[in-house]
Nucleic acid binder design. Structure first.
Lengths: 197, 197, 197, 197
DNA sequence: TATGAATGAGGTTTCATTCAT
DNA sequence: AATGAATGAAACCTCATTCAT
């Protein structure tokens, strides 16, 4: 049944349309990191070399655009977590933390902003989010089983610590001494001493 | 003839004016926590039950209002740090962290936002900030001298961790298990084991 | 019958009240020249070293303040015209033009602005205006009788030319060559050749 | 992809956009004459039957709108001066004065206001202005060469007199006897007797 | 009376979103 | 599908005027 008129959900895009969509998403991600969630739609369009109309054709709402950016980032992180799972237990979690901090921009700021604005982004990205949490959980569980991470802590809490570290990295610069020390302190606190030895 | 010669900066406010100023500041602090720095001046006025004009009479600019909020918060924190200094070394830092987390709203988010917006809030609040850092430094130094905190860490880095913890507390709720665990993990990581035993 | 409660029109002012009124008027005149009719009431108060409230006690409206300024200026000009009437016919008009140009600031701009704003300033100052016109008329009539000014022109029209010259003087500076040449050209055109010889 | 590479300054406007721009400009010119430079952008939009946003899309600033109005008027006047240059020397200047007075609204008031407001409109319109002055200079020079205008006067000064006449015309009405007499007097004063004989 | 704090309508400007081309 | 002009609500801020002190 080759798509006749799919309900507007996920119809295959024309090549150039797909290219536009991707470029807009990339630009939005960059701007989000630069300016926070008050970035302007017009500037997204300008930098993506596209008319505003095109942005709104792909993402019916500014909010929808931001949510999509976050979603795609979560998906990439999930992939990374899975790729990392092959390392030995005592360094996998460390490596993952480092990777996330390295590549993730202001997710938490965005989350906060969306939450505060009373936006119900939950539905849209619950799926992406829970896949990410599952991947993280596999890492944590394995580390706890290997006794390199304390057992009185849940994935959700590990996630929060990760978010906090991203925040520091963002504030002080991704490679800064401050960011590295913060990472070390948190890992020590988690009981992942193997990583620092 | 308007008063003697107004002392250039802050002649005594009339009773009602002072009340208004305080109320505006309080409302702004609350809104800042709720909505981040994109709060609307108009709403501040509405919630403070005051005309917009009054807000602008007291704080000539939205930026000035936000900066003042942050400043007053820093001052309160500094006072707390000093009050806490009498506790034994091994619990003072712990107590201070807990107190800050308990009472501080989104300062870091605001700081970040201001910075990102290219706002030169630096001058205005450098004073308040450095007093706070001094107070924090006294606590840290004392804890390090008593060998309850690792020596390879500076005040600035402790500050960043504190900011990260505030962030978690804000995200999950001030009394939440997540916030408490995060605090515990960080303190353990800092080497403040006395506090958790 | 020593004033019991005069209808709020012209009761004798207390000494300091009178001083305030005068100072406000003077300041307003200066500001009017500097900034045109969009001057701010607050600044009038500030420069007069008085509270805004005081300004509004003396002049119930900004409009009223401006109208009063103009009125007082017209009165001064009238006095000058009368003082000058003693000079010989062939130089009196010339001298008067020069005096007016020298001392009068943006009256016409104000008039225009008031008119345009649909303000009925007519009533308030018709008296002052007609006295001024009468004085001017005496000068013109005398010059025409002495055959030093062309007879096909009315006072009203001479007035308009005077206003135009004030305008130039204001635009280019009161002592500027441009202002002087304009005065010379107009006087020559009026037939007042005696003045330039 | 937005067009080829937009010529940096003034790519061709869409038909309706051009119509809007023109209408806004016309309305602004009228309002400027009616109310002076304190006209409200909002009213411009209302009378042009356009949203405020549209006004600001075409003219990013109120100042920019006013400056553009003046510029376009200067351009029209320059064209007129050139068209008139074919008349005999002794009537060309007269005709030009008459034409300017007939068609020009409050330019001088605006210029004054802009200047007073400290607006640096200079750059923007220096070009338009100097072209106009050049056209006027050609007329004056020719009249002086033909000995119908006094030689002790510069173009700049002739310009000021012209401005003064426009002022009178505006105050009393374009066709009024007062405006005509003023014109006659000034021309006589300039030595352009040919025009009045 | 004098003061200056308070008020709120109104002005300029931005920006998410819609719609004609 | 893409474009960018148009829209108008809403943001920040000013200022004439009122009113409690």
């Amino acid at each position: 049944m080759p798509s006749k008129k799919r309900p507007a959900a996920k119809r295959r895009l024309r090549a150039d349309a797909a290219r536009n969509r991707a470029k807009i998403l990339a630009v939005a991600e960059a701007l989000l990191a630069e300016q926070g969630p008050s970035l302007s739609t017009e500037e997204v369009a300008r930098r993506a070399e596209v008319g505003v109309g095109t942005v709104f054709r792909h993402f019916p709402t500014k909010e929808n655009l931001l949510v999509t950016v976050i979603q795609s980032r979560l998906e990439r992180l999930t992939a990374q977590a899975d790729a990392i799972a092959e390392l030995p237990e005592d360094s996998a979690l460390f490596a993952f933390f480092a990777a996330v901090i390295e590549h993730t921009a202001s997710t938490p700021v965005v989350l906060h902003a969306l939450t505060a604005a009373g936006i119900d982004s939950a539905d849209v990205q619950r799926a992406a989010m829970s896949e990410f949490m599952a991947a993280l959980e596999r890492l944590v569980r394995r580390a706890q089983d290997a006794a390199v991470v304390r057992k009185d802590i849940t994935v959700a809490e590990v996630f929060d610590l990760l978010v906090a570290l991203v925040h520091v990295a963002e504030l002080r610069g991704r490679g800064s001494r401050s960011a590295q020390i913060a990472l070390r302190v948190v890992l020590d606190g988690l009981g992942v001493r193997g990583a620092s030895s």
